[in-house]
Design a protein around this nucleic acid. Sequence first.
DNA 1: TTTATTGCAAATACTTTGCAATACT
DNA 2: AGTATTGCAAAGTATTTGCAATAAA
Lengths: 143, 143
Amino acid sequence: MLNQVYHLLKECNLRSTPQRKAILEILYNYKGHHLKAENIYGLLRTKDNNKRLGLATVYRTMELFEKIGIVSRLSMENSSARYELVMYDELMHHHLICLKCGQLEELDDRITEEFKKRILEDKGFEVADKSMKIFGYCSSCKR
Amino acid sequence: MLNQVYHLLKECNLRSTPQRKAILEILYNYKGHHLKAENIYGLLRTKDNNKRLGLATVYRTMELFEKIGIVSRLSMENSSARYELVMYDELMHHHLICLKCGQLEELDDRITEEFKKRILEDKGFEVADKSMKIFGYCSSCKR
DNA sequence: TTTATTGCAAATACTTTGCAATACT
DNA sequence: AGTATTGCAAAGTATTTGCAATAAA
């Protein structure tokens, strides 16, 4: 998986730097999680503090990774954006975000596909969003 | 309509200041539009420049208006939040946002109600979001 | 050797906050 | 008179950018 990414970088004429590898590893180890740039930065700083890297590099790398399609960015209403590795063996997904506990849940694609289809029929609007964010209360926080 | 708001403010022990009235009037005149704090500020500054007000007041007022339920805030991915007056004679609504031209369209509530119901059945997640933002391409920008 | 990439610090964009002055009620 | 509200400037957050130094290729 990581090797596939290195090839992808090479194909795009991009360099495989230690920083990019380290970030990628973190993302891989935390798949399913939704990390802030600050989290990635913190994890790399503490875990292995001979790894020097700047927060700006994290942001630049996330932008790059998003551009080449291996990371998806989830921008939040009132706080910093979250990033996660796109897994090729999974479908892209949409998120349910709990307003109380902040947890992110994934939404079944059958439901979203049906929703998109209805919007297209009704409005001629083609949903392109690969990660819709739906706010509400999760089953445990719901009163 | 504006008088109803003044009453609402009174009920909440909030004062009807010229700034609040002016902002409310702008929102009313621009209903259906989705204004940035900066827009409201600009409109009040140029239209009637004896109206002195600070941008901070616009932000504070929008926060307040949102809290008492007369304004809905639409926070955007890569730019500043937009605000609009909530019309009591209309249902709350969700938005389709065109990634190309930036236009906002409203989405039929029957479609969203169905979607919410499916999410509740599937995940036990209760959608609270009164203005979902769905990104994609509108009928004219769609290729 | 060439040029992409980095770290740092400064800049930016949007929004919030502290505080003394002002003005509703 | 009393206190909610204001304007201003400063602070805060999240992110981006300029630039000289560094390091992949």
